[in-house]
Design a protein around this nucleic acid. Structure first.
Lengths: 106, 106
DNA sequence: TTGACATGCAACCAAATGGTTGCATATTAA
DNA sequence: TTAATATGCAACCATTTGGTTGCATGTCAA
């Protein structure tokens, strides 16, 4: 599980959409994931393979179906690379504040 | 500052190395950054332009030199996208534990 | 002012990337 | 067993990407 693979995997908008889809509903099969996508099944398969190689997605064979699960660990490691622990808490607080302000404004 | 630009920027190992370099010493000029890199100055310029467009790097003109600064905000937003707040604390604790264990082992 | 230094712009090229189509394999259900 | 369903593999193609070289511009210092 090289970090390089993780970053490369996250670079593509389709793959991020797949992660979003799994974040919303975990354990989806290939066909289920394909339904939201506007491309062939084979293209989606390739993207999932890249996500798997990056260890961002874990799979489980169940009969003739393949279930896909999101793995958040590598994403957390990204944040830890360039953000110090203290700075990170500060940024989280800032982002919370921003969200609260956005919610309160008309 | 689109998220897409951020992910695309982080996809390349050279650009991540540039971020590392700025994380180690902030405010470096183009030439300073070039010294660690094994490619032409023009190539580095292109990479920095992509990092700037992603708002991962901020620049300040000082005379004929251009200083480059790391901006951690977009990186924090990545982590917030796929990791819930509670889960994130758990992952941080886990990563801390792992580091401590690695340090203690021979 | 003039030469040296720091950066900017543009054309060009090889390789990687994201997509397609076509066919193969494996499992379930009738 | 057999037809339908779910996934896998491979060849092929257009576009993007990361790099180069060559030249232009702008600023500092002698």
């Amino acid at each position: 599980m090289s970090m390089d693979a993780v970053f490369r995997a996250l670079a593509d908008p389709t793959r991020r959409q797949l992660l979003d889809s799994l974040h919303a509903r975990n354990g989806q099969t290939l066909n289920a994931l394909c339904e939201h996508m506007d491309m062939t099944r084979q293209a989606v398969t390739k993207h999932l393979a890249i996500l798997e190689e990056a260890n961002l997605v874990t799979t489980m064979r169940r009969g003739r179906e393949k279930e896909h699960y999101l793995n958040p660990v590598p994403i957390n490691e990204i944040a830890e690379r360039w953000i110090g622990k203290f700075e990170r808490h500060r940024l989280d607080a800032l982002s919370d504040l921003k969200q609260r302000l956005e919610r309160e404004e008309p």
